[in-house]
Nucleic acid binder design. Structure first.
Length: 382
DNA sequence: ACTCTGCATCAAGACGCT
DNA sequence: TTAATTGATGCAGAGT
DNA sequence: AGCGTCC
């Protein structure tokens, strides 16, 4: 779901935080990309006329590999070095949202069964697309052969992308997902890929400018996003984007807003605060997500493994050998020209708040417990 | 009249020839 | 049963 | 730019 209406708020209140530019201005930059989200889009969009996915002779889907291969080449051609980040396990707090999605999926399956026209069937089929473990593993294999670095995040890929940008390992997180701003990525790039062919320019959102422009701390900004609606918990019914911003500006935190509403001073009875509302946990997932420390990550772009790449894509997946070979030379050329690179990030250290430090300590303890349990379970099974 | 929320609906990649 | 999009847009309708 | 094709 991302954050509902966040882009509208920023566009309206802080348009200056969104810089519009074309792809050329990112020459020499490294960027982090949410791989799982990309794969999802490729699986939906890369189709034949009949609506079926691209496949090899064995019927194995190749749409995701197709999309990833050529999108990566396009970025390399423009001097942009991508690093892909794969999703890990979703945080526990997301399970409510996920079961909701699961029931929606059942509905879609019903609609598909009832669909009469081919067009209707195609539509419903696309809504049932899911990114499997195999899709992810195949994409990782492809990236490995192309010499493009990738990371498997402990939890949310967006959080890890932001961490890479914060530690100066990449210039920005490239994503359509506005969640990324909550993790305080220095820059968020939207529409990075389709800028050349389509009409939209690249939007470069500067998180610090957003905070300054809205006159909110990062904690207040995250609280705002929780009230707008995120994946982790409900929001206050009856409070939309306009009211949410007004409330956070006036009261400064969800705690104070809840206090204000419950005191009755708001003389407003329509606002319904969710019961057992875990907004504090949601807040911590944004402010201090579980990520691999960017300082421990060394991103490396290597020459492609030519023979294996041809074996995999051409022999196995039936890609055109001519196209793949041309792709290989594009990769080699891009690696050479971009070798000097640009300095990414300012290596600014944002001090952690007391809350963040406390949460980190707590989480470390929970992890210890969790690991113990895991050992028990695996021992029991095997 | 106006503002705001909430719901339904839609579309979603890249290449290369013409 | 090992996967669970999202954001933009437009409209209805409630509330002020 | 439009359109068939990629696999």
């Amino acid at each position: 779901m991302g954050i509902k209406g966040l882009n509208a708020i920023i566009s309206e209140h802080v348009p200056s935080a969104i810089r519009k530019s074309d792809i050329k201005s990112f020459f020499g930059r490294k960027v982090a990309i949410d791989a799982s989200m990309s794969l999802y889009q490729f699986l939906i969009a890369v189709r034949q006329q009949d609506g079926g996915q691209l496949t090899n002779e064995a019927g194995e889907t190749t749409s995701h590999l197709m999309g990833m291969f050529y999108r990566t080449l396009r970025m390399i051609d423009n001097g942009i070095k991508p690093c892909y980040v794969f999703d890990g396990k979703p945080p526990d707090l997301k399970s409510h949202e996920l079961t909701k999605r699961s029931s929606r999926r059942v509905e879609t399956e019903k609609k598909l069964a009832e669909a009469t026209t081919e067009l209707e069937k195609m539509k419903q089929e696309r809504r049932l697309v899911k990114v499997s473990k195999e899709h992810n593993e195949e994409a990782q294999k492809l990236l490995g052969l192309m010499g493009i670095p990738y990371i498997i995040a402990p939890t949310e890929a967006e959080a890890q992308c932001a961490e890479l940008a914060k530690k100066g390992k990449v210039y920005a997180a490239a994503s359509e997902d506005m969640d990324t701003l909550c993790y305080r990525t220095p820059f968020l790039l939207r529409h990075l890929t389709f800028s050349e062919t389509k009409k939209e320019p690249i939007h470069e959102i500067d998180t610090e400018l957003v905070l300054r422009g809205l006159d909110l701390t990062i904690e207040q900004f995250v609280d705002l996003c929780i009230m707008l609606g995120c994946d982790y918990c409900e929001s206050i019914r009856g409070v939309g984007p306009v009211t949410a911003l007004k409330l956070i500006k006036t009261h400064g935190s969800i705690e104070k807003i809840v206090e204000f509403i419950e005191s009755g001073e708001s003389n407003n009875t329509k606002w319904k605060i969710p019961e057992d509302w875990p907004y504090k946990q949601a807040r911590m997932l944004f402010l201090d997500p579980e990520v691999i420390d960017g300082n421990e990550i060394n991103l490396k772009w290597s020459p492609p493994k030519e023979k294996e790449l041809i074996e995999y894509l051409c022999d196995d997946k039936k890609f055109s050998e001519e196209r793949v070979k041309s792709g290989i030379s594009r990769l080699k050329k891009g690696l050479k020209s971009g070798i000097q690179g640009r300095l990414d990030g300012f290596f600014q250290v944002v001090p952690k708040t007391k809350e963040q430090l406390a949460a980190a300590a707590k989480r470390a303890q929970e992890n210890k417990k969790l690991n113990k349990n895991k050992n028990k379970v695996t021992k029991g099974r095997r």
